[in-house]
Amino acid sequence: MGFKLLSKLLVYLTASIMAIASPLAFSVDSSGEYPTVSEIPVGEVRLYQIADGVWSHIATQSFDGAVYPSNGLIVRDGDELLLIDTAWGAKNTAALLAEIEKQIGLPVTRAVSTHFHDDRVGGVDVLRAAGVATYASPSTRRLAEVEGNEIPTHSLEGLSSSGDAVRFGPVELFYPGAAHSTDNLIVYVPSASVLYGGCAIYELSRTSAGNVADADLAEWPTSIERIQQHYPEAQFVIPGHGLPGGLDLLKHTTNVVKAHTNRSVVE
């Protein structure tokens, strides 16, 4: 069995187990497998329904001669939608809004960016022009300005110390501490036991640490421990890039980060 097929099978099995364990909360999309990078042309966006009122959005972007996937989250909030992270750029984010209108038909009224990198804030200006209120932590807003990236308009308070959590509509926002970046936030959907790890969490097929220019490698494993301790009931975990899975993604990420750190020390 090929690795790609095995990865998709694991996603399907995880979703099936969740649907059985929580039949009222989960209505997993039966329309197909989780979209992969090879299936999404740059400039297009796919939506994948995880649970009743919960979707991931998947886009792709060219970077350094390669094409990478990027995940975000959409959560229903009454007759409105909360968006977590842009679709990595203005063109993708405009396509995301169009796809949401086509498939869901509810307005996106608020959006949260989970850290300051372009795959999370690139497209904020498109959201703002569409009347979406954009939010991020003060740290993310400051770092985005320093980096020359787009800056969300509103500040999220109460997320300055490791372990801080605040309720934001249908989700809980959690600051686990520094990891992929010093400002990275985690998003949890309690009604569906869905954990969105953003770039602080890796997919299972990833074996290298990737972009760690703004990471705190020493603190990252401790931050992941905080996530595990705060959300032990999480059933569906979405990484910032690639295929979702279960809580095993947290341990896998820790292993990859520690291996990278150990290699760096040896070198």
Rank of each mutant, 00 (worst) to 15 (best):
I58R: 06
G158L: 13
A90C: 09
S160P: 12
G32F: 05
E203A: 14
G245K: 03
V187T: 05
I238P: 02
T261S: 06
A98D: 10
D85V: 00
S70E: 02
P244T: 12
S139W: 12
V166P: 03
E172R: 15
L204I: 06
L10E: 10
D216W: 11
V124Y: 03
A192H: 10
E150C: 02
S162H: 07
A66D: 06
P190R: 10
A213S: 11
G32S: 13
L5K: 05
V266P: 08
Y202N: 08
G72K: 01
R263H: 05
I151F: 09
D118I: 11
H180Y: 03
G123D: 03
I238N: 00
A129C: 04
I238K: 01
S113R: 03
D119K: 01
P239H: 00
Y196V: 10
V237Y: 15
L106W: 15
L143E: 08
L195S: 00
G158A: 15
L24Y: 10
P69W: 05
P221A: 07
Y175E: 02
F168V: 12
G65S: 09
Q228F: 15
P35L: 13
D29P: 10
A200D: 03
Q103H: 13
D183T: 00
I151V: 08
N211S: 10
I20P: 15
E80K: 15
G158H: 15
E172M: 14
I50F: 15
C199L: 01
G53W: 09
T140V: 02
G210R: 13
L24G: 05
S139F: 01
D125T: 07
L243K: 05
Y196L: 14
V171H: 00
R46Y: 12
R110G: 13
D214A: 12
E157R: 15
G245S: 09
G158W: 15
S208C: 13
G53K: 13
G72T: 00
I17T: 04
V11L: 06
E219S: 12
P232S: 09
I40Y: 13
M18K: 04
A178R: 10
I104K: 00
L6E: 06
E101Y: 08
G105M: 04
T86H: 00
V187M: 04
R141L: 07
F236T: 14
S27N: 04
Y12F: 06
V187E: 01
F26I: 06
V194N: 00
N184V: 01
H260D: 11
R46S: 07
G131H: 13
D52K: 13
V265C: 06
E39S: 08
G169V: 03
H252A: 10
G65N: 04
Q235K: 14
A259W: 09
L204N: 15
S191G: 11
E44M: 09
Q229Y: 05
G198H: 02
V257R: 02
V75L: 10
Y202Q: 13
A94W: 14
E39D: 15
L6R: 11
V54A: 10
G169Y: 15
E267A: 05
V45R: 02
I224N: 12
P232M: 14
L82Y: 10
Y231N: 03
I58E: 05
S223Q: 03
A66E: 08
A59I: 07
F63Y: 05
H252P: 02
E147T: 09
R120D: 05
S30T: 06
S56G: 06
Y231M: 05
W55F: 12
S30W: 12
N92L: 15
L106V: 14
I20L: 14
Y48E: 07
L156T: 13
E99T: 14
S161E: 12
H154T: 07
T60M: 08
D77P: 01
R263N: 10
A133G: 09
V67Q: 10
V37S: 10
V11E: 04
D248E: 08
V132T: 12
V132Q: 01
L243W: 11
V189F: 12
E33L: 11
A15W: 06
L9K: 06
K258S: 11
P244R: 14
S137W: 11
R141G: 07
P23Y: 07
E267I: 13
G65M: 06
L24R: 06
M18F: 04
A15P: 09
W88I: 00
V257T: 14
V28T: 08
A218G: 10
G210T: 12
G32L: 15
T93K: 00
V132G: 01
L173A: 04
P239G: 14
E267P: 12
E145Q: 07
V256P: 01
S62L: 09
T140G: 02
T254Q: 08
D214H: 14
L106Q: 10
L156P: 03
I84M: 07
A213V: 12
T60D: 06
T253R: 00
A25T: 08
G242C: 03
T114Y: 00
A144V: 09
A21D: 12
V171L: 06
L24I: 13
E233V: 08
L204T: 09
I151G: 10
T86F: 00
R120A: 15
G169R: 05
V121S: 04
F63L: 05
L82E: 04
A200H: 03
S7Q: 04
F3L: 05
F63W: 05
A209E: 09
